Computed example of a mutant assay.
Amino acid sequence: MPTSRVNKFEKRRKNTKLLSTLIVAGSILLVVLFGILIFGGDETDEADNEQGSPQEEETDSASEKQDASAENNTDPNGSTDETGSTEDSDTEEGNNQEADTEQVDPSDDNVIEAYTGDWQPVGTEQSEPHTINYDEGSQDRHEMRTAVASATGLDEDKFTMWWIERNGDQQVVNTVSDPDETEIYRVYNTWLANEGWQPTKVEQLKENDQKARFE
């Protein structure tokens, strides 16, 4: 009988120890599961956020490109398109030139067309009283070239001044042409005190009627 009681006690002690072990293992397992649920969810959210970042950056980059594109199409002066603005400006300038000129009767049969305009004096560095200096390289010759270019559109540095003819008090007629003599003009200039030479009339010529002077 004593031996049987001892066996029962040992068996009961082993069962109790096994149960305690199972309880501890279960507790650890629960802790691990909770940890996975808590920290695993945060990592998932963090991973989602990390995956979302490049998309947000890409969206921001696209927005910046659209803004830059719109900015490039805006001219500092308010035009919506740089190329269109230049063309519009040139067209308006041409229209203004046409509107500011008026056809008049030609002075002789060598004239293709004649017109007057409201061209402005070109300015001067000369003082009053003014006396015309016809010499090559003079300030008058230089300022006359500027006046001729403003009225005809010829390149001031390249056109040929063939002849300067007195046309009254402080008035001259300049016969000029482009280097190829495909454009030949008489330009009537008047001196305005302290303001310089002012073109008042232009005649486009069929032939250079002053060239014979140099042949």
Rank of each mutant, 00 (worst) to 15 (best):
R5N: 10
G52K: 06
E50F: 08
S63Y: 10
T59L: 02
K65T: 11
E57C: 05
P54T: 06
R12M: 09
A68I: 11
E43I: 06
E64C: 04
S69Q: 15
E43L: 12
D42K: 02
A62I: 12
V32P: 00
D42Y: 04
L33I: 15
K8F: 10
N15F: 06
S69H: 11
L33A: 12
G52L: 14
Q55E: 10
L29Q: 09
G26F: 02
S27E: 03
N7M: 05
N7R: 05
L22W: 07
R12V: 08
P54H: 09
A70S: 15
I36N: 13
N7W: 01
G26M: 03
V32H: 00
V6F: 02
P54W: 01
R12T: 09
I36W: 08
D48V: 12
R5Q: 11
K65Q: 14
T59G: 06
T59V: 14
S27M: 09
A47F: 09
L19D: 06
A25I: 08
F34W: 06
E71T: 11
E64I: 11
A62P: 00
A47M: 05
T21H: 04
T44H: 04
V24P: 00
E43A: 13
S53N: 15
G52Y: 04
K14P: 01
K17W: 03
L33P: 02
G26Y: 03
D42L: 10
K11D: 12
Q66K: 13
P54K: 01
L22M: 11
K11Q: 14
T59R: 02
A25G: 06
N72T: 07
A70G: 13
V6S: 04
D45T: 10
K11P: 00
R12N: 08
R5V: 12
V31Y: 02
A62K: 01
